[in-house]
Design a protein around this nucleic acid. Structure first.
Length: 426
RNA sequence: GGUGAGGUGGCAGAGUUCGGUCGAUUGCACUGGUCUUGAAAACCAGCAUACCUUUGCGGGUAUCGUGGGUUCGAAUCCCACCCUCACCGCCA
């Protein structure tokens, strides 16, 4: 949610900065609605004022045992008028709410313009893609040959875009989660957190998935409806919905491992092979709630925390700044971490680190008490994957594959696998 | 699933019997001041949010879980819904 003041006073300017995102703000419609709203509200308040005055007067008359019949009669007439104005005002408020709830965040000034992901700007690269001296395979081939990755079984028990893993691969997958949680809690100062995997509609609204992206969510048909989380960002950030934090409590840092569930509506043809795009995947998520003045430094820092994971795993990656059109709905700026996948001969997204500034905080009413003003003010929220587990596993399989079709285990993971240095058939 | 209790400001907690001067008593927390070498304590004062209006001071409207209803007037009465807590049943 944008600052309503900003929207009212500078609609043209807001429209201009949102255009690179591919969002067309209907300024005329907004201003028409605003104008009507304002006029109706003024009328309503005048009428209410008269009514309140009369009612008070009636109270006094009655207390004094005097006749109030005529005044009551006059005041009754106000009722009908108030009702019709109230109805119209409510209608307009609903339209305004729909409109404003669907407006994306304003990109930070450092966000590059651009039409597609091709316009994302590379910031830096780390590590060198390995030169293989033998024929290499992608993770699907490798996993199926090992007998530890099975998409057909998943299709049978559920449907497409799910996977079954067994033996060493399942264990490696679990080890990744443990490794990342340990790293972020022990070295980066995050608090390990466990949360519900289903959330209510308010939570999804708070982080910006609703109302616009309902079709991307899995939901129950219970009443009330619950949604399977698309990312831990939703339950973790919403811990602070309707809360006021003391400045001494900031910054808040949570690390949270959860499964994530996504419909992947609208991506039917994409990444149909393998584990890259699934309806269910694990992720270790980093979430920070910070004082507004520190959020841009926090974004760099948080991105660094995610990068550390790749560095410890010795996986080559690059960092890109998403261009305006590729930016998520709620984000002011996002860095994507892209890991090198030899099977695809390209870098693929493995983490997305964003600063939302007050956009989510406003939707959630998440605030802190600013000592300088001693008033509650909106916090800034940030999050980033640290990392997506499934894609990390894919990256390890492909980057650490050996000529004999086994997979070496990165050094830092060996303690988590009882010292095992290689995934191979028993 | 059953029964009962309850949802009020940052928190705690009155007010709901008998609808009117209740946006709301009080305590804590917080902010400013007095006092003090400094701090604490004590005392004094201030202290919800949003919107409209005003150069400013200020004025107005709404909000007591949500939505609807009764009424000239609703925190208070009526209806529906949501949520929380307690106990019982069932279950991992």
């Amino acid at each position: 949610m944008l600052d309503p003041q900003l929207l009212r006073n500078n609609a043209e300017e807001v429209a201009r900065v949102l255009r690179p995102r591919g969002y067309l703000l209907d300024v005329e419609r907004f201003q028409d609605l605003e104008k009507d709203r304002k006029q109706l509200q003024i009328n309503q308040q005048q009428l209410q004022h008269s009514r309140n005055q009369n009612s008070k007067e009636i109270g006094k008359l009655k207390a004094a045992k005097e006749d109030a019949a005529e005044l009551i009669k006059n005041t009754e007439l106000l009722g009908g008028e108030l009702k019709s104005i109230g109805d119209r005002l409510q209608q307009i408020q609903l339209e305004l709410n729909d409109l404003t709830a669907g407006i994306p965040n304003i990109p930070h000034e450092s966000v590059p313009p651009g039409e597609s992901e091709d316009d994302n700007v590379e910031q830096r690269r780390w590590g060198k893609p390995r030169d293989f001296l033998f024929e290499i395979f992608d993770h699907v081939q490798l996993g199926e040959d090992l007998g530890m990755l099975n998409f057909e079984q998943a299709t049978k028990v559920t449907g497409s875009r799910f996977v079954v893993m067994t033996a060493g691969l399942a264990r490696l997958h679990r080890a990744l989660i443990q490794f990342m949680l340990d790293l972020h809690t022990q070295e980066h100062g995050y608090e390990e957190t466990y949360v519900p995997y289903m959330v209510n509609a308010n939570s999804l609204f708070g982080t910006g998935q609703l109302p616009k992206f309902e079709q991307d969510q899995f939901a129950t048909d219970t009443d009330p409806r619950y949604y399977l989380i698309p990312t831990a960002e939703v339950p973790v950030t919403n811990l602070y919905r309707d809360e006021i934090l003391e400045s001494t409590e900031l910054p808040v840092r949570h690390v949270c491992h959860t499964p994530c569930f996504r419909r992947e509506a609208g991506s039917y043809g994409k990444d149909t092979r393998g584990m890259i795009r699934q309806h269910q995947f694990e992720k270790v998520e980093l979430v920070q709630i910070v004082e507004p003045s520190t959020s841009w430094a926090a974004l760099e820092e948080l991105t660094g925390h995610a990068e550390t994971v790749l560095q410890r795993l010795e996986l080559p990656y690059r960092v890109v700044t998403l261009c305006a059109s590729d930016l998520g709905f709620s984000s002011a700026k996002t860095y994507d971490l892209e890991v090198w996948l030899p099977g695809q001969q390209r870098y693929r997204e493995i983490s997305s680190c964003s600063n939302f500034e007050t956009f989510q905080a406003r939707r959630m009413r998440a605030r802190w008490r600013n000592p300088e003003t001693s008033k509650p003010e909106y916090v800034h929220t940030l999050n980033g994957s640290g990392l997506a587990i499934g894609r990390t596993l894919v990256a390890i399989m492909e980057n650490y594959q050996n000529e004999d079709r086994t997979i070496s285990v990165p050094n830092v993971l060996r303690p988590y696998l009882g010292g095992c240095d290689r995934i191979q058939n028993a």
